[in-house]
Structures are given as C-alpha cells and as structure tokens.
Design a protein around this nucleic acid. Structure first.
Lengths: 188, 188
DNA sequence: GTCTATAGGTGGATAGAC
DNA sequence: GTCTATCCACCTATAGAC
C-alpha cells in the first residue's frame, strides 16, 4: 500500500474537479475541504493557481503519452491500437469526466497564454500517434480508408473528444458506444 | 438600421463571452464595461446570473432549431443539408467561438440542475434532424453509409463538436477542414 | 431603465507561529 | 508542511434615488 504524497493528492482532486466542472469553476477551498487540510497549505505546494493548472496539464500530457507508447508496444495490430485508444476515452466517460485537454480547449479564451503551447502539443501528440498507427495499418493491408492518414486522425480525435463531451452531458452512454463503433468499423 | 434593445445587447455580449471563456469565467462587470452601462443595470434585465444563463441557452436553441428548419426547406438534397449544417460550425469557428451547447456540455458539472433538460434537448434536436436527413438521403439513393442513421448522426454531431473545439484551441483551421471533408465524403 | 452606494460572500494569496 | 489570521480584489445581488 503506497503512500500518496499530499502534492499528488492535491493534483488528483484538482484534476477530478477540472474534468467535471472546468478549471475556473472550482477553488482551493474545494480541494482543501476534500483533502481535509487548510486552504493555505495548498499554496505551499502550488503557490498560484496558474502553477497548479500548468502542473495538471503537464502531468496529464505525460501520462497520456506514456499510455500511447505502451499501447503501441503491446498491440501488434493497428486495429488493436485504435481499439485501446478508444477505450481510454470510454474509461474517462465511465468516471463521469471529460478529457482535461478537451476541457481546456473549450475554455481556451480563459486559458493563460503561457499554457497555450502545451495544450497545442497535447493535441499534436495525439494526432501524430494516430496518424502513424493509421499509416502502418494501411501499409499492412490491415486498415482501409480514403483520404490521408492525417485527415482520418483528425476525424478520430475530433469524434472521440466530441462524443465524450456530449455523452457525458446527456448521460446517454449509447451515443458514445454507437458513434465509436461506427467510427472504427469504417476503417476496415 | 434596427435599434437593438439593451436586453439583446446584454445577451449578445454574454453569449460571445460564454462561447470563448466559458460561462463561469466572465462576470456582470465584463458585460457592463463592454456595453458602457453599470453593473446594477444588468440585474434589472436579468436578476440573477442563472436567469441570464437560462435565457442564453433558450435563445441559442431556438435560433439553431430555426436554422435547421430553414436549411431543410431550402435545400432539396440531403448532401446539401449536411453541407449547410457543417457550414454552421465553420461559421462559429471563424468567429473564434465554440458551440454554446458544447461549451455547457464540457462544464456540465458546474451547470445548474434546472438547465440540464434544456441542454439535453439541444443535442436531441440536432440528432433528430441529422437522423432524418440521413435517412431521407439513403432512401433517395443519394447517400450511402453502413450502420443505422442514428449512429451516423451521433458520429456527425460528435465529430463537428469535437473538431470545432480542437480547431478553435489549436488555431489550426486545417484540422476542421480536413476532418469535415473526410466526414462528408464517407457518406457518398 | 439607469444610476450610486453598499451589502455579504468568495476568490486567490501572504505573513508568521508552530 | 500545516496551521491561524488576515488582506484585498472581485463577485453576485439589493435598496433606493433620479
């Protein structure tokens, strides 16, 4: 049973709040209450809320990139990679959250300028991975699609992000299920 | 030159702010400043911020429904309807905004409970319209797709909403362009 | 319908004791 | 590293004059 540092607990709680309400709809007080410590103690770990937001995005990105790398090395087939990728979104849905990147994207007008490049990179990382998987799959004769691998990657990312958002809001799991099934079926 | 009522000007400004920053990242003071009146005057038109948010969503829904009805009566072909529908999202993108419904969906954890049914209805209206257009198109032999019209409607809505969000955040118009082109091409 | 003035609460943030 | 105490800015909202 590993002990989780206070710092990590703060990040976990903040991330959950950010993925459900949005980053501007929760406060240090919300974190403090759930964690059972005082408001000021959180400032010791993250002096400003911008520090917290930056670390949240940075951590989310590196976890995601790591996951993508694992999928690629564990799954022999491209279709398997895409299935696992879709599953990541479905897992997020089941926890009644949206993607932190998608959340920040939707509030981009309120996002501090210094974080814009990092958010941009988050989406680029997804698109590069998807493009590579799609290209490999076509070369192997395992996948089939019209147009470029890039445009199909754009479509996959957009549909999964949008589907996650809408399904989470309407609380109708069937929307995500039928959408993602159709999406993947069209690549065969 | 029609005179716009103060009430409508408030709604217009609030909508622009909500579609760029999110509803919880702007205040009455922001509206007051842009409109050149005082904070308290806005409360005369919308006593609470919940009143404002409710009216914003209600108005947005009815404008959208109206638009969908117009498209249906003006366009003879299903493909033309879908093209026009996609254009609505592209117009939103050009004004550096996201869909108000998508914005509220992403912050659904902060959305007042009384507005949830209305947000739900917004998405249902889109899906019903899309499903009907897709079904008609297939019957006419004008469109071709696998799976049900409902699942294709889910995919269209999700992809356009997600594509709008991501493209607005990355400021890379090409993502939306290539995504939407591929999306529509696959229905032929 | 708009104003001034103000209330009451919450936001992020800091100083300094323990 | 966490606490108490406190600051100041901002937020939503109301009362009452014009």
């Amino acid at each position: 049973m590993l002990r989780i540092s206070t710092r990590d607990q703060i990040l976990n709680i903040a991330q959950a709040l950010a993925q459900t309400r949005g980053f501007n709809a929760f406060s240090y007080a919300d974190i403090a209450e759930e964690l059972g410590i005082r408001n000021a103690s959180i400032h010791h770990h993250f002096p400003s809320k911008l520090d917290l937001e930056a670390e949240l995005l940075s951590r989310y990105r590196s976890v995601f990139v790591n996951e993508l790398s694992n999928i690629r090395s564990e799954e022999a087939k491209s279709a398997g990679c895409l299935q696992r990728y879709t599953q990541l979104y479905f897992d997020t849905l089941k926890s009644h959250r949206v993607c932190l990147g998608g959340m920040m994207a939707s509030d981009v007008g309120a996002l501090p300028d210094v974080l814009a490049p990092s958010l941009n990179a988050f989406f680029e990382e997804q698109l590069e991975w998807l493009t590579s998987v799609l290209r490999t799959g076509k070369k192997n004769g395992e996948l089939n699609y019209s147009g470029s691998a890039e445009s199909q990657a754009n479509l996959l990312l957009a549909a999964l992000q949008g589907g996650l958002m809408i399904t989470n809001a309407t609380n109708d799991e069937a929307i995500f299920m039928s959408m993602s099934k159709t999406l993947l079926a069209q690549l065969k």
